[in-house]
Design a protein around this nucleic acid. Sequence first.
DNA 1: CAGATTTTGTACTGATCAATCCAAAACGGA
DNA 2: TCCGTTTTGGATTGATCAGTACAAAATCTG
Lengths: 193, 193
Amino acid sequence: MARPRKFDEERAVDAAMEAFWTTGYEATSTQDLCEATGLGRSSIYNTFHSKHELFRRALARYMARRTDELTGLLEEDRPARERVEALLSRIVAEETARDGDGRGCLYVNTAVELAARDAEVARELERDYARRLDALTAVFASGQRDGDIAADRDARALAHFVIATVSGIRVAARAGADAMALRAIARTALDAI
Amino acid sequence: MARPRKFDEERAVDAAMEAFWTTGYEATSTQDLCEATGLGRSSIYNTFHSKHELFRRALARYMARRTDELTGLLEEDRPARERVEALLSRIVAEETARDGDGRGCLYVNTAVELAARDAEVARELERDYARRLDALTAVFASGQRDGDIAADRDARALAHFVIATVSGIRVAARAGADAMALRAIARTALDAI
DNA sequence: CAGATTTTGTACTGATCAATCCAAAACGGA
DNA sequence: TCCGTTTTGGATTGATCAGTACAAAATCTG
């Protein structure tokens, strides 16, 4: 063997994720990444080979973490409608929190900033979309079995709708909508399901 | 007087708008803006003083144009529900068009890319949000007078909800959702109003 | 036609970008 | 302890960034 690393790769990805999350892909310089991770240029390029590849790692980590949270929340033993309500409430709480301070959601940010001109990233976003769609579809299907979601609805359509509502709340928050407005959006969306 | 301009300022703003729209603020270089507008550097800086100010002009133009389209559509003499349905259909059609090709919406793009770190831009987005909110609120209020929207609903909440649905559809389109999914989102949203 | 004024093209500024190079440093195995 | 291997820091690369300097060109007023 040889000289060992003196940093933890996963912690570095985490730090890079935070940087990309708050600043965006283009606006985060490699210098910013050095400062965020505490690593030198060489260590970053030796480990991740390029800013783009580090971003992909950071995005994958973000999506995995978020989708895990989502599925955890959606697997709770409650009526389907309540589970979706809890999901939307959490999104509203996140977006109105004054400490997280308006960085939004890396998934939405990336979809808007990069998806159109980066096929690899677009593919990753699609895969994550599919995962969340499946999780939500399962929730609505179980709600239909339990009877608290009308049986004649299309579970998959409802799942698409909830995902869109989440993104809608996030964009509205960035466009300056206040907490009351965000709650109104969530409440109105719940009327539809 | 003195030497006259040999270009149309408004056409230049239009061209810049197209560039920012397809590429984003950061990723559009001043060189790109020269090529898009057909102007030299000097003309651009002599007229608009900075990339940032040109962007603000372009954004204002985009929002004015879009909000005009919106209010035009919403002032048609039809039941409120149909007017909102027409609005959502248009958004879906835009996002699935294969020629416009995935540039999305400059308003949403800007909210996500810039609003958090550019107070001036954030203020403009808020003003536009308010304009669209008022237009939609008026539609729902008229629908309640006509009886095709339930009188016990909150017209303003419904308006927030429709705006969020539009953003949600746009983000979903960028994340890879297909035309059927976008139509399902619009249809489900209509069930809520 | 002459003088005042503005636009325009071109060359240039210093800063910063992502990425590379290279030698010194640090470890494991022998 | 010494060799092979890898990591690390710091200097450096060429490209590109937003913005400027300046003089030639073009038009109006007189």
